[in-house]
């Protein structure tokens, strides 16, 4: 099968389905949130080992989903985003903010691991709003910190997708890509490798 630009379609052109499956699985069982680590590790392997952004360019399910919703389903205004959104200081600033929040989430997981805190069955949206999510976990063979990481990671993934959807509607389809922390990180690695 070919797409409209005449290029052959590959299995990885359908990874937008993965984005939907990921959030659906996490809705029912928070342990599935761990699968999101694939989307963190794979781009880094491509960048560190291959020195490329093949993941962003071909495999990013989130980017594909934004394109599908924004372009094919016409959910985007397709207006140019403000210049500062793709400026270096904002991109690296957002990456730093994201890494800080990731570190905070790891620390929360540690607190549950050490027994200082108990497991909180909430999904935190935009690092602020706590949404009860207790149905997604009723105990397992794993210790509580495993579930705590799931809640934290799912919150991070859901928040970033929501930000991506908002900028998709307001600006270009894949505006998220211009300041995606993974994208900034992998491009930075590639630039360092090719110096």
């Amino acid at each position: 099968m070919k797409n409209k630009t005449g290029k052959k379609r590959h299995w990885y052109d359908y990874l937008w389905i993965w984005s939907i499956i990921y959030f659906s699985l996490g809705f029912f069982n928070i342990l599935f949130a761990w699968l999101g680590m694939i989307d963190f590790i794979l781009p880094l392997i491509f960048a560190i080992v291959g020195g490329n952004k093949w993941f962003c360019n071909n495999m990013c399910g989130r980017g594909q989903l934004f394109w599908l919703l924004g372009r094919n389903l016409k959910c985007s205004r397709k207006k140019p985003a403000p210049k500062w959104l793709s400026s270096k200081w904002f991109r690296y600033g957002f990456l730093a903010f994201f890494m800080t929040m990731f570190g905070t989430m790891i620390f929360q997981t540690y607190l549950v691991f050490s027994g200082a805190n108990s497991l909180r069955k909430v999904v935190k949206l935009f690092w602020t709003f706590k949404v009860p999510w207790e149905w997604a976990y009723n105990g397992s063979i794993f210790p509580d910190w495993v579930a705590q990481f799931g809640y934290g990671f799912y919150s991070l993934m859901l928040t970033s997708t929501l930000i991506g959807l908002i900028v998709m509607v307001l600006y270009k389809e894949r505006t998220w890509c211009s300041f995606c922390p993974m994208g900034t990180m992998t491009q930075g690695i590639c630039k360092l490798k090719n110096k």
């Binding site: 952004k53 962003c56 360019n57 389809e173 894949r174 211009s178 300041f179 994208g183």
Partner: peptide
């Protein structure tokens, strides 16, 4: 940003 949308 090397996202690759243009190539696609």
């Amino acid at each position: 940003v090397a996202c690759g949308v243009c190539c696609k």
